[in-house]
Design a protein around this nucleic acid. Structure first.
Lengths: 153, 153
DNA sequence: GCCGATGTGCAACTGAGTTGCAAGACAAAT
DNA sequence: ATTTGTCTTGCAACTCAGTTGCACATCGGC
């Protein structure tokens, strides 16, 4: 988890037309450092004492989305997971896989999902794919304790 | 919107191993009568004075899902939309299209979305596809007032 | 350094969905 | 038909991610 240079972060913010502030730099840093999509709370936890107010994190994420720096990756248990936009293409994010056994959600960044075929009258700008089933850790449940350490990423 | 026979409904419930009660028959009736996926609140509204308690509707829907009579179709604005399971295949529900302009969500029942290609180590049991873009009503916004009458279904 | 536009923190709110529990309804057996 | 145990229902109170209003603080162009 290498910590990206501060100057890079500032540059990113400016390129998105955003003012550079402490909450924004730290939140963006946390997002970039994370292995996968994260929730507001996970960001706050990762930042520990440096974490901005919950409301600020939400508003910051909103600003990032507006500036196309960040994506809403998926919704799980009524909470949003966010991730840096550069990990996705414009037209579709990589599929997200939720394991029905351990509850973990993985990003299938390597998977190439075909775009939906055209439907008369509709203009499809973005496609989101969620998969469910058994993850590698739970596939052979006999000698696995994947259930004990649920974690998203 | 033809009202399905009560006996048919009872049969459906019994075939799912569920006890036949008034709340269950009315809720199932509302689901079958609806043109598309509906929320708990929409069910309650559709049933008017006959509507069971909110908690009961949720528990009823849960029981229906357990019995494979009903699906969670999609999540929108943090609320679930439910729909009868017979409108979906086991492996994947039809894609749902949300219009970014008018907010309406349509079921693309006619669309055949290919299943995700296999990924090493994962067993994909179910796939959910959400599409975003412009719906036919909003595609040519100049002579349309689709925005004024948002409605799901 | 000043100042208007933006961003931040706090506290209080929202609203879909959940939980605990007592009372009621179903259906199988008598 | 009545009993009986189990499953359902309704109510009230709760949860918790996300939002809102507002006063105060900060940014960055001048």
């Amino acid at each position: 988890m290498p910590e990206p240079e501060l100057d890079q972060i500032r540059q990113l913010l400016k390129s998105g037309g955003l003012r550079v502030t402490t909450p924004r730099t730290t939140v963006l840093q946390a997002l970039l450092a994370a292995a996968g999509p994260v929730t507001q709370e996970q960001i706050a936890q990762a930042l520990g004492k440096k974490a901005p107010n919950k409301v600020t994190i939400y508003r910051t994420l909103e600003a990032f989305i507006e500036a196309d720096l960040v994506h809403r990756a998926f919704l799980k248990d009524r909470t949003w997971y966010f991730e840096p936009a550069h990990r996705c293409s414009q037209e579709q994010c990589h599929p997200h896989f939720s394991c029905t056994r351990c509850g973990r959600t993985d990003c299938l960044t390597e998977m190439k999902m075909p775009m939906a075929p055209p439907v008369a009258g509709y203009i499809v700008q973005h496609q989101r794919v969620q998969l469910e089933g058994l993850c590698p850790r739970c596939k052979a449940p006999l000698h696995s304790s994947a259930v004990d350490i649920p974690k998203t990423g």
